[in-house]
Amino acid sequence: MAALIHKMREKQPLLPAEQQELADWLNSNESNTQLLETLQNRENLTAELEALMQYDEDNAVAAIFSALGEPLPAVAPKATIKMGSFLAAASLLVLIGLASWFYLLKTGSTKNGGPSIVYKTISTAPGEQHRVLLADGSEVWLSAASSIRYPASFKGDTREVAITGEAYFSVTKDKTKPFLVTANNAQVQVVGTKFDVMAYSDEDATRVTLLEGSVRVGRRQRAEGREEETVVLKPGEQVSVSRSSGLSQPIPVQTDEVTAWREGQFRFNETDIPSIMRQIARWYKVKIEYNGAVDDIHFSGQISRKEHINELLDILSDTRKVHFEMTNDSTIVVIPGHK
């Protein structure tokens, strides 16, 4: 099977018998489809290789290939593979990634016999978005300048992930295994639902917005001796968790404004200029400086994130409430009033 997947990665045509073998393998187990997606993704495959490097004994490597039913490569993988030469070693990486996946799922053990949890981290750069499929079928969309850390497979009584930045979740329902999201000092507990978590470090609070279902939001850490405080959200509500004032009461919000980034849009509704500029900085990878007070200036409107940054700044300038100057080092200076 590793050889067939390698042929697919190299865009080599499969024979009819090979196509049938691949189809039978995919249909035999739902997790095989996810495995194929993982192995076709460079970032995921790199993460699998990094996980495999934990097993640095020769007999462990041999056991991995034995579990797969593949012959041990003549050249030792650890001695020859370097992360910087990923493409040159693609065929061997497929074998290693496939073998390590099955070995970890079948044995669930580490070198000392304890349970093994392999974590992956996926990050987005400014101006990027990324969809992540979790082992339970839940989907996560990462906004720009964000990251998620999650296990390759969910073990135990909960499904736990951690994010920075902003992410939209569509969680597969499982009443026996709650889904937990940690973001800064907030923790969100759900069973199956759709919600958005915004937890950028330059924001004054972590905000959780519910679109469907129900979620319980609390502080990640509480003061010793104090009863834990939580809030249950209804669809269309948002709650904030700040380090200074703690957990807020739910408020109604326009969810389409909160999740507009998923549709490739900037959408503002009486949004203050500093908040707008933070979004611009994350998407266009620019620095922001202020030459005067602009906190009381607000703007409503919508524009595609595909537009050039100058187009967006021109629209804001047309309000004649604020204008901008761009320096040579990609710094935008925000100045109140018109030119």
Rank of each mutant, 00 (worst) to 15 (best):
residue 98 L to A: 11
residue 232 V to M: 05
residue 161 V to P: 05
residue 311 E to K: 09
residue 201 S to Y: 01
residue 116 S to P: 00
residue 100 S to E: 15
residue 253 V to R: 09
residue 47 A to C: 02
residue 45 L to T: 08
residue 268 F to A: 02
residue 329 D to Y: 08
residue 189 Q to V: 05
residue 211 L to I: 06
residue 308 H to K: 10
residue 175 K to M: 09
residue 137 G to I: 08
residue 133 L to I: 10
residue 251 I to E: 14
residue 139 E to F: 00
residue 337 G to T: 01
residue 87 L to M: 09
residue 124 T to K: 09
residue 140 V to S: 13
residue 314 D to E: 14
residue 250 P to H: 07
residue 191 V to L: 15
residue 149 R to N: 08
residue 279 Q to K: 15
residue 89 A to I: 01
residue 100 S to I: 11
residue 245 S to A: 12
residue 280 I to H: 06
residue 281 A to Y: 15
residue 157 D to V: 02
residue 8 M to P: 00
residue 17 A to E: 15
residue 270 E to V: 07
residue 165 G to H: 04
residue 134 L to W: 02
residue 294 V to C: 11
residue 84 G to P: 00
residue 75 V to D: 13
residue 24 D to W: 10
residue 128 E to L: 06
residue 306 K to I: 00
residue 89 A to Y: 12
residue 247 L to S: 11
residue 37 E to K: 13
residue 126 P to R: 03
residue 40 Q to S: 12
residue 256 D to K: 06
residue 63 A to P: 05
residue 60 A to E: 13
residue 132 V to Y: 08
residue 111 K to P: 01
residue 120 K to D: 07
residue 115 P to E: 14
residue 172 T to V: 10
residue 9 R to L: 15
residue 94 V to S: 04
residue 212 E to W: 10
residue 128 E to I: 04
residue 187 Q to E: 11
residue 267 R to D: 02
residue 145 A to Y: 05
residue 239 V to S: 13
residue 170 S to M: 04
residue 273 I to T: 01
residue 148 I to A: 05
residue 95 L to D: 15
residue 243 R to C: 01
residue 226 R to F: 07
residue 212 E to D: 07
residue 299 F to L: 02
residue 36 L to H: 04
residue 279 Q to M: 12
residue 113 G to E: 04
residue 63 A to F: 07
residue 293 A to V: 12
residue 336 P to N: 06
residue 239 V to F: 11
residue 139 E to W: 02
residue 332 I to G: 03
residue 53 M to T: 11
residue 71 P to E: 06
residue 26 L to S: 10
residue 259 T to V: 14
residue 214 S to Q: 12
residue 82 K to C: 01
residue 129 Q to F: 02
residue 298 H to P: 00
residue 175 K to P: 11
residue 175 K to A: 13
residue 271 T to A: 06
residue 315 I to W: 03
residue 248 S to L: 05
residue 99 A to N: 01
residue 25 W to T: 02
residue 25 W to K: 06
residue 97 G to Q: 08
residue 88 A to P: 01
residue 158 T to Y: 13
residue 181 V to Y: 10
residue 222 R to I: 08
residue 229 E to D: 10
residue 153 S to Y: 12
residue 254 Q to A: 06
residue 119 Y to E: 00
residue 32 N to T: 00
residue 304 S to P: 07
residue 152 A to V: 09
residue 259 T to M: 13
residue 145 A to T: 08
residue 20 Q to D: 13
residue 251 I to T: 14
residue 18 E to T: 01
residue 60 A to N: 08
residue 66 S to D: 12
residue 278 R to C: 06
residue 338 H to E: 06
residue 6 H to W: 02
residue 154 F to W: 07
residue 295 D to S: 13
residue 206 T to H: 04
residue 79 A to K: 13
residue 134 L to V: 07
residue 266 F to V: 09
residue 291 N to I: 03
residue 135 A to G: 04
residue 154 F to Y: 12
residue 177 K to W: 15
residue 58 D to W: 00
residue 74 A to D: 15
residue 287 K to R: 14
residue 303 I to E: 04
residue 81 I to C: 04
residue 262 R to M: 15
residue 212 E to P: 09
residue 27 N to K: 14
residue 277 M to I: 14
residue 164 T to Q: 14
residue 316 L to I: 06
residue 189 Q to N: 09
residue 115 P to R: 07
residue 254 Q to F: 04
residue 94 V to N: 12
residue 304 S to M: 03
residue 194 K to G: 01
residue 82 K to D: 09
residue 48 E to V: 01
